[in-house]
């Protein structure tokens, strides 16, 4: 059983790693964040699988932390790389005029 779970973890790792390949080939900023988002989800899945294999319940806590903060990073991206004239944020425009 443990082998099956580990194999699943390995497959997920390979898949999300392949998802990072477009970044290497120079994709747009948004695509990069999508790859990181996928990496976060894949990381959570792998952590849950590893937790089931090793029986350490605390690994689920790590997955919980990662799940919370992957959303946080994407929000940070939307805030720090706003589309111009966006109504979502005006922070970088403000930064320029105050700098």
């Amino acid at each position: 059983m443990a082998d099956v779970l580990l194999a699943a973890a390995g497959i997920i790792l390979v898949t999300v790693a392949l998802g990072l390949v477009p970044i290497v080939r120079g994709a747009s900023a948004t695509d990069n964040i999508l790859a990181v988002q996928l990496f976060g989800t894949g990381g959570v899945a792998v952590l849950l699988l590893l937790g089931a294999v090793s029986g350490a319940e605390a690994i689920v806590d790590v997955a919980l932390t990662l799940a919370l903060l992957s959303a946080f990073v994407s929000v940070a991206f939307v805030k720090s790389y706003p589309a111009a004239s966006s109504d979502v944020t005006r922070s970088s425009a403000m930064y320029e005029c105050r700098a």
């Binding site: 976060g40 605390a58 690994i59 790590v62 903060l69 992957s70 946080f72 990073v73 940070a76 720090s80």
Partner: peptide
Amino acid sequence: ALTEAAIGSGLTGLLLLNAASR
């Protein structure tokens, strides 16, 4: 691992994203 997930990936990610955008 908990610290790394929280600080290394989360908060430092925000810090670097802000720095890169500025």
